[in-house]
């Protein structure tokens, strides 16, 4: 039999060949317009002096001037690099101070997140059965709560004069049993003046810790559930104590998740903005003690109206984040 007719396919508006590309295109279109293009444009802008509103023709070529202006290296006496005066000089320069603040808050808020989340997750994983979901939900709640709303409440709680936190802390500190105050060394007996600038970064760090410790706990808990039970059974047969099981099984098995969670914390804390911004009412606190780099960048753009410099800050910060992420990869990444 000899085939005679060759069928023409019905016309469809979407052929099988092109459908996948059409289906994935929304992301790429949106990213090109609202992600890639502005990014490239900001590289360009960072080389100019520009207020962001006047026509593009008004842009003034600066070259790397904006970057040098941000880094503010002139006048630093590098021969005195090991003296306190040198670092005070560095701290007085906006970009470096903001970077220092970011790192300080990042570490003081970030490290305890993991140091507490890991044992907490292990404890919840092994000890809780029925109450587990409830406990977890409570710890997770801060993570999904509107930052602005809850941070404003924290502001009230940290008030020196009427603040609940002072009342609670001094209450514990002054608590006496037979004329002896057992907690007076660990807790304050007098109200703490939380409004002093030295306290501001601590408050920010506490709020950040409070928001994310539950998130990290949940991450570690999820990882714990994937550890095969027979590892522990084998260890118990060998007579390993719970502590040795933790050190020799749990921690090594958690390592990929520790890497992942620390990376998330690192990237998140380096772009810290909402909590310090709201806690300090957008000012960065007295003497900008809690102004993070992202806040500094926005201040340069919105208050100073200097979009060229703000873009330069963004890219300097980006390089810094990239550097730290790379270092994190070198140090913590599990080797296979």
């Amino acid at each position: 039999m000899q085939p005679t007719e060759r069928n023409r396919p019905r016309k469809r508006w979407l052929s099988k060949k092109w459908a996948p590309y059409v289906f994935v295109s929304p992301f790429f279109i949106l990213f090109a317009i609202f992600g890639l293009f502005p990014l490239l444009f900001s590289v360009y802008v960072s080389l100019f002096r520009w207020d962001g509103v006047s026509p593009l023709s008004q842009m003034k070529w600066e070259g790397f001037g904006n970057y040098l202006y941000v880094l503010e290296l002139e006048g630093l006496d590098f021969r005195t690099v090991f003296t306190q005066a040198f670092w005070q000089d560095v701290y007085s320069r906006d970009f470096w101070r903001s970077l220092y603040n970011t790192l300080w808050i990042g570490v003081v808020a970030g490290l305890p997140q993991h140091l507490i989340a890991i044992p907490l997750a292990v404890f919840i994983h092994t000890q809780f059965r029925r109450a587990r979901n409830g406990i977890l939900a409570i710890y997770f709640l801060p993570f999904i709560t509107q930052t602005v709303a809850i941070v404003l409440v924290f502001q009230a709680l940290f008030s020196a004069k009427f603040g609940v936190i002072n009342s609670l802390l001094t209450g514990i500190g002054q608590w006496e049993v037979a004329g002896f105050a057992p907690f007076s060394l660990m807790f304050p007996t007098e109200p703490v003046d939380w409004a002093r600038p030295q306290k501001t970064p601590w408050i920010v760090a506490f709020v950040v810790w409070w928001r994310y410790v539950g998130w990290n706990t949940v991450l570690y808990l999820a990882a714990l559930q994937t550890i095969p039970k027979d590892l522990y059974e084998a260890a118990r047969v060998d007579g390993a104590s719970p502590w040795r099981q933790f050190v020799h099984i749990t921690l090594p098995q958690l390592r990929p998740m520790i890497f992942f969670a620390v990376t998330l914390t690192l990237i998140g804390n380096l772009q810290l903005f909402e909590e310090p911004y709201v806690l300090t009412a957008g000012t960065g606190g007295i003497g900008q003690v809690a102004e993070t780099s992202a806040m500094y960048m926005l201040r340069v753009a919105m208050t100073d109206g200097d979009f060229g410099t703000a873009s330069a800050v963004a890219w300097l910060l980006f390089m810094f984040v990239a550097l730290l992420t790379w270092m994190n990869n070198r140090v913590l990444k599990p080797k296979d």
Partner: peptide, 11 residues
């Protein structure tokens, strides 16, 4: 990082 796109987004 999200802050890289903050300034460009405003622009």
């Amino acid at each position: 990082p999200s802050f890289v796109s903050m300034i460009p987004t405003i622009l």
